[in-house]
Nucleic acid binder design. Structure first.
Length: 395
DNA sequence: TCTGGGGTCCTAGGACCC
DNA sequence: TCTGGGGTCCTAGGACCC
């Protein structure tokens, strides 16, 4: 594989930073984003921003400012637990429409300089800078990595000019290393790593820093006495394969050596669309059946709306259910023909529901549609079905 | 004061077909 | 009678990521 210059760009505390543009007076204070969705009333109220102390409910932190992180809270943490650690931290509910707007702005600003972008969600991207870096380099004897650094700095300036926001960038020969590198000097960092830097910069880090090694795998690695990426790199490959399987074990070993040949993928089609909701209080399948039925139908309608808006139909309808003990089960059913119709989705999901045990309270209900396609010329469109639905356990 | 919501990918068994 | 592969689709669960 020829030498590449791959960047990973990660927006710094993205949701919180967008909020600070709107509420500059909060700058410097500990702030977390999370909890229920923001309503128009929340925005117009103009009242004081509530603190974590006042919160009650099942929300989690989606983003914490660096000031809040200094108090021990982090994304994914339950808000009730965070309130124990940082009762005076300010809490704002998320405003996803606004974050998506800023997401488009920063991606457009990057794209104007470097078009080879892979979307990795609302606040991060990979960028293949190889062409850009090398084109400035024909016959030049100076260091292309220094040039890569200049390109990255210009991207950071472009993002700041377009949005007022800061980001961190890692540049290395591949996506795996760049993802790690962009995290090394947050916020506002610019980290360039070459292959020769792996032993000093990568190997001391915990194995968990590798994108793809999560909480389960890192715990299992620890039981093998492997904590750092360096220890993983020096582990016996056969031992890893024995414990983690041929595919995952071998991948881990290669990752620890910084080997990754994946391309920057600039376009991909969605594979599934889903909507789910966690209830404020667990619902009883019998006593709360009317409420459950209404929520269920609403989820199906929202999935159908999403399909319509994005221009897809789907063939596999899925149901997701989480019980009060957090055990999660899924059921799905594949239709004869793809659909985008809320009533059809509701009927199929209703059939799935008949196949799950309803012997305990329910915490979460979700509806998913997969095996997506574009409603094509030869695909037969359903006549409008008026959301007539077959009786189900929730009716 | 446990643990959101939207995704992707992988595995594994069984059905079914050649 | 028993014994084969391989390939694809469907379903359920789980790890992981942002």
């Amino acid at each position: 594989m020829p030498l590449r210059f791959i960047a990973h760009l990660d927006m710094d505390a993205f949701y919180a930073s967008v909020e600070l543009l709107r509420y500059p007076q909060l700058r410097g204070k500990p702030l977390v984003i999370g909890g229920r969705r923001r309503t128009a009333a929340d925005l117009s109220r103009g009242a004081a921003i509530p603190t974590l102390r006042e919160y009650s409910g099942r929300g989690v932190i989606t983003t914490a400012t660096y000031e809040a992180r200094a108090l021990g809270v982090h994304s994914g943490m339950g808000l009730m637990k965070a309130a124990q650690l940082a009762p005076d931290a300010l809490l704002l509910p998320a405003d996803f429409d606004e974050y998506r707007r800023y997401s488009r702005m920063f991606k457009d600003a990057v794209r104007a300089v470097a078009p080879e972008i892979e979307d990795r969600g609302i606040d991060e991207i990979y960028i293949d800078l190889t062409g850009l870096v090398m084109s400035g380099f024909a016959g030049d004897t100076s260091d292309p990595w220094a040039h890569a650094r200049d390109v990255a700095a210009s991207l950071q300036r472009a993002v700041r000019e377009a949005t007022g926001l800061s980001c961190s960038i890692g540049i290395t020969p591949n996506k795996l290393l760049s993802k790690i590198a962009s995290d090394l000097q947050k916020p506002g960092g610019l980290t360039v790593l070459r292959e020769a830097d792996i032993p000093t910069r990568i190997w001391p880090l915990p194995a968990r820093k590798i994108n793809g090694i999560g909480p389960k795998a890192s715990t299992r690695l620890e039981t093998l006495g492997i904590r750092t990426i360096g220890e993983l790199a020096k582990a016996d490959r056969a031992l890893l394969v024995e414990h983690f399987g041929k595919s995952y074990g071998a991948w881990m070993f290669d990752a620890a050596h910084g080997r990754d040949e994946r391309a920057v993928v600039t376009y991909s089609e969605p594979k599934s669309i889903s909507r789910e909701t966690t209830f404020e209080d667990d619902l009883h399948p019998v006593r709360d059946r009317e409420r459950l039925s209404r929520i269920f139908t609403d989820l199906c309608v929202r999935v159908a709306d999403d399909l319509q808006r994005k221009g897809y139909v789907g063939k596999t309808i899925g149901l997701k259910l989480r019980y009060d003990n957090f055990k999660t089960i899924t059921r799905d059913r594949t239709l004869e023909a793809p659909t985008g119709d809320a009533g059809t989705i509701r009927r199929a999901a209703g059939e799935c529901l008949k196949r799950v045990p309803l012997d305990r309270r329910i915490r979460l209900l979700g509806v998913r549609i997969g095996t997506l396609s574009k409603p094509g010329a030869h695909a037969h469109r359903d006549a409008k079905s008026h959301a007539a639905h077959a009786p189900t356990l929730f009716d």
